[in-house]
Nucleic acid binder design. Sequence first.
DNA 1: CTGTTAGCGCTTTCAC
DNA 2: GTGAAAGCGCTAACAG
Lengths: 335, 335
Amino acid sequence: MVTLKELAAKLNVSVSTVSKALNNSPEISKETVLRVKELAETFNYKPNRAAINLKNSKTKTIGVIIPNILNHFFAKVLYGIEQEATKLGYNLITCLSNESYEKEFNSLELLANGSVDGFIMSIAEETQINNFTDHLDTILKQKIPIVLFDRVSEKVNCDQVIIDDYDAAYKATMHLINEGRKNILLINNIDELSVGKLRSKGYVEAIENSNKGLKTDILTISRTEDLEEKIKTYFKNNMQIDGVVSIDNVSGIVALNVAKDMNVQIPKNLSIIGFSSQEVLHFSSPKLSTVSQNAEEIGKTSVNLLIDKLENKTEAFVKKIETVKFSLNLRGTTF
Amino acid sequence: MVTLKELAAKLNVSVSTVSKALNNSPEISKETVLRVKELAETFNYKPNRAAINLKNSKTKTIGVIIPNILNHFFAKVLYGIEQEATKLGYNLITCLSNESYEKEFNSLELLANGSVDGFIMSIAEETQINNFTDHLDTILKQKIPIVLFDRVSEKVNCDQVIIDDYDAAYKATMHLINEGRKNILLINNIDELSVGKLRSKGYVEAIENSNKGLKTDILTISRTEDLEEKIKTYFKNNMQIDGVVSIDNVSGIVALNVAKDMNVQIPKNLSIIGFSSQEVLHFSSPKLSTVSQNAEEIGKTSVNLLIDKLENKTEAFVKKIETVKFSLNLRGTTF
DNA sequence: CTGTTAGCGCTTTCAC
DNA sequence: GTGAAAGCGCTAACAG
């Protein structure tokens, strides 16, 4: 890599002249600027990033910590983050916590030494179950901003971007009730997560508020259990079920396939609403009705929130914490 | 952030003493080492990354460029890359080219200034269609190593990690032939990509080599067309089809669902083999037979290849280019 | 055993 | 208009 020093030597000028010329300083004569730029071009000069970072004590880099990249929702949020960050001239250092507290902890530690200017993250399952937040506070104390999305924690005093999970599940359930469904099952595959609890609550309160004498019916499935098997068995033992609200990414599609294999007519005899993203929809037929999670928007909003904190640092301590809540739409083709 | 200087001041020793103590230099007395480390601990000292990068002219960071993170195959490769990189003490800067040559070009330019030590990437669709490789050569000329995976180019002189696509499609097709299928359709959704061409070739040659008078039958679908619609129409007009080889990530599952909706018995009257990853399998019932793409292994191997180049730099120019080819297994539950 | 010095590549004040 | 010098935080050769 060519350095300023080398360019300066070749041009018989000082390093500072070269630097100023490249930065269009008015101090330097038009002529010199031209000569310098020309040479820089031919030698394909690029300012050394590490030097600039050191000088500016900032990196224009965002640390992103994702619990599970194989989950389509997170992949899509990352997609949104990347779009917006690139647009605004930021790079991403991506870490995958793989739902482990230890990995999440290590990633934060590792990057909080001048590798990144701030973090965007969703909390690992293990972290959320144990309600650990000290590691986040440690980072915030170092004046490194964090934006939390989806899986958040009220204990942590930072910006948060979430969807209105309670509302989404409430509306989805109401939709089924208004269709005339009498036995609506909730399939809950993510009971330990904050979002899971909120969605459950939405379902329960919709059932209760409906005043039609409906009863809640919840099938909780843990990560280690066989989703398909569990659903199949439950359906067999509860043939009266005529509506399903699935609050995670995949169980809705599984339920749909299981029901079809049992020759249940969809949507005539069974109506299913899931939280899957649009992209997996061509894996089901008829198409599953879904609640859109606005994943891409969540990513973009997170970036904007973070960069705002970063670049208006003077206000950073004055500015209040924001919580952006997306409301959701029911989308679907078959209902 | 605390610096060495600050620690030194508090301890009334020189900066270099602190530095050496922290790095366990034998030059420093046990006593001093202890004092220094203790203070470093209480002030939560972390060496400034930018300074170290500048000093060492390396970053312990790998640039990863992925064409499309929403494609499950790439997500899984990234997963593998991240696992291995973390294990070996490297960070990832992730860029998404979004199948665009321009974005790919920019990402390379941007990071090739001391932001990363090397690249792991899969070529964007646009880049591959136009067979652009100059931008890669530019990077390699700067002695920054690149490892290409999956979508590779023979024109570029660097390490490559691929699966044996030809072989996989050949074997999958042969499998159907040996089952006694007479009218085997190839669904090709990725005709422009190197992997698509190789897989097509495998299919064609398997049909020809079978010596059973079979004919090739290829349904090419472009990105812009409606996959489901196209497949449905084709099936309707070609009811004799009794076997399908789907060479991309999703069309196998779509074909399976379409066939089921047409009341075709699977696998009795129609046998389908896809290249989907295991994870999407619970979206189909009966389970699609798939060719395993070893995505995670591809990621891990890429990291190892790159770090090998990076850390044995003396040999880098001697060491020959490696092409790692994974062979594939047919997996599935219904055959 | 500890300290001084130089330098990684760059920007920026201050002199000339 | 241009250059010298200092400094970002760190390491390492050399001196004491």
